[in-house]
Amino acid sequence: MTLHFDNISYRYRPWRTDVLAGFDYELPDGLTILLGPNGAGKSTLLRLGASVTYPRRGQVNVDGISSKTREFRRHVSWMPQNVTAMTALTAREQVSYTGWLKGMSRSEAWAASLDALATVNLADQADHKTKTLSGGQLRRLGVASATIHRSSVLLLDEPTAGMDPTQRRTFRDILTTIADRGVKVLMSTHDVADLAEDATHVTVMSKGQIRYDGPTYDYLRNAPVGTPESRLAEAAYTALTLG
């Protein structure tokens, strides 16, 4: 199943200008990195895609199922930038709760929660209260919560912000594993360091417009000729967002 943004327009307040106007986008297979500077419209796109908010015009849908329906929410998961820890619950209980919220029965959610935690390498923390988890663990808990019900689409809003390079690496590995299961993953970031070879796709946004949308290897060709290989991603990003 694929997430579509069909000719959507969105503004935060009626008297403000559109953040997105006549915007079209289709989420490709695999792991897609959504790049863009602050204010590019990345978070807005993800929130629209997660049905947190609805477009003023146009439609967000999953294979024709509108984001305004409950059915849509079964297929799409969203992990916000700040994952809330329910301090009174254990990691497993929190993950199970999100599974229940997505329509699983209690027993289904309880059973699936261990798998979800294992996927993000948190199985050993299953019975620990969430308040004992570190920042990085909490992000992984967010991914486990977002993937417990096996949705078709996973949207992540800057999940690597504040992580060190090792944590980023681990986190991207987890996302690759999830993408390999057939889940379409869209992860926003404004840090090109997140753009690794394991991302199959890159989308670059700036000022509410898509500047680039295509495979990773093509993206790197946007870098000016003569750019050292180690700086290709960054140079391409600069060329696309400033150009």
């Binding site: 049905s51 998961s77 809330t84 009174a88 709760y97 229940w100 919220l101 329509g103």
Partner: peptide, 15 residues
């Protein structure tokens, strides 16, 4: 206030 705002917002349960 003891809730998961984002998950509950995108929930299919009548929270």
């Amino acid at each position: 206030e003891s809730r998961l705002p984002e998950a509950e917002l995108t929930s299919i349960r009548p929270v």
